[in-house]
């Protein structure tokens, strides 16, 4: 089973499992990941998706292995997504992680955009997503030199949010996913849309998008619940409506 997906308490856990190829996706697995992402989008019970790797790597194709692209499938998920980097994420493997909203890494994992060292270049969105996610100076360094970053270095430049001991990664990821799953789903979706779409346009247009989405949220039950729960000093109960 190369791509597995199990859903518990609103969290879809997707595991890349092509161990002989460093969890790189072949044609069949890329198609399976597309299907999985489509189901995550359509299933209202899923609030958050987590992507991780089986074994000791996240996704780190060895030389000679041509990984199939799939980052667009992950990026198309309108719900919050997390990459739990249980081990190395390099080349096309890091490109998959960049399509997620938040990245956590196990200590000891290494991150690199190293296609250039093999005479290739990123072709699953890496040249576009990396400089959008972190400062352009760091992105250029990674893309042009292909150098490997430790998890701690990746955290320092903002590429991963948190570094944990390998044994703690799953628990920390679950805690984060649970926190995200507890949020009002429509608000989470709109934040993601406002940030992503807003960055592709001028500030003035982005501000209009934000204002329109905020006013649209006025029509949701969850926003009213959020305000009353705050004023009544209790935990909100969001229904996604």
């Amino acid at each position: 089973m190369a791509i597995s997906c199990s859903t518990q308490s609103g969290i879809a856990w997707v595991t890349l499992g092509n161990r002989r190829a460093g969890n790189a996706l072949d044609d069949r697995q890329a198609a399976a990941l597309h299907d999985t992402c489509r189901r995550i989008i359509e299933d209202d019970a899923v609030r958050v998706a987590v992507f991780t790797g089986a074994g000791a790597v996240f996704c780190s194709p060895p030389p000679g292995i041509r990984a199939r692209p799939a980052a667009e499938a992950i990026a198309a998920i309108v719900k919050p997504t997390i990459a739990a980097l249980n081990g190395d994420a390099t080349g096309p493997g890091l490109e998959l992680a960049l399509a997620c909203d938040i990245r956590l890494a196990a200590r000891g994992s290494r991150l690199a955009m190293d296609q250039v060292t093999r005479g290739e270049m990123p072709s699953d969105g890496g040249t576009q997503r990396l400089p959008r996610l972190i400062a352009r100076s760091y992105a250029a360094d990674m893309l042009l030199t292909g150098r490997r970053l430790t998890a701690a270095e990746a955290q320092r430049i903002g590429l991963v949010t948190e570094v944990t001991a390998a044994a703690q990664l799953q628990a920390r990821t679950r805690a984060l996913a649970q926190a995200l799953a507890a949020m009002a789903p429509i608000a989470a979706r709109y934040v993601k849309e406002a940030i992503r779409e807003g960055m592709e346009t001028t500030l003035a247009q982005g501000l209009r998008l934000e204002a329109d989405l905020a006013v649209l949220l006025h029509t949701t039950k969850d926003r009213a619940e959020g305000i009353s729960s705050f004023l009544e000093r209790r935990e909100p109960r969001f229904t996604g409506s």
Binding site: R103, R132, L133, I134, A135, G158, L159, T161, M183, A184, I186, A187, A188, Y190, V191, A194, I195, R196, G198, M199, L203, G206, L207, E210, A211, L213, A214, L217, T220, D222, R223, A224, E225, G226, I227, S229, F230, P236, F238
Partner: peptide, 22 residues
């Protein structure tokens, strides 16, 4: 988002421009 809202005083636009999307 914890209260079912989104930042609506420009935050979704200003923050990623100031500190990056990630």
């Amino acid at each position: 988002t914890q209260l079912g809202m989104i930042p609506a005083a420009g935050g979704t636009q200003t923050m990623p421009r100031m500190i990056g999307q990630a």
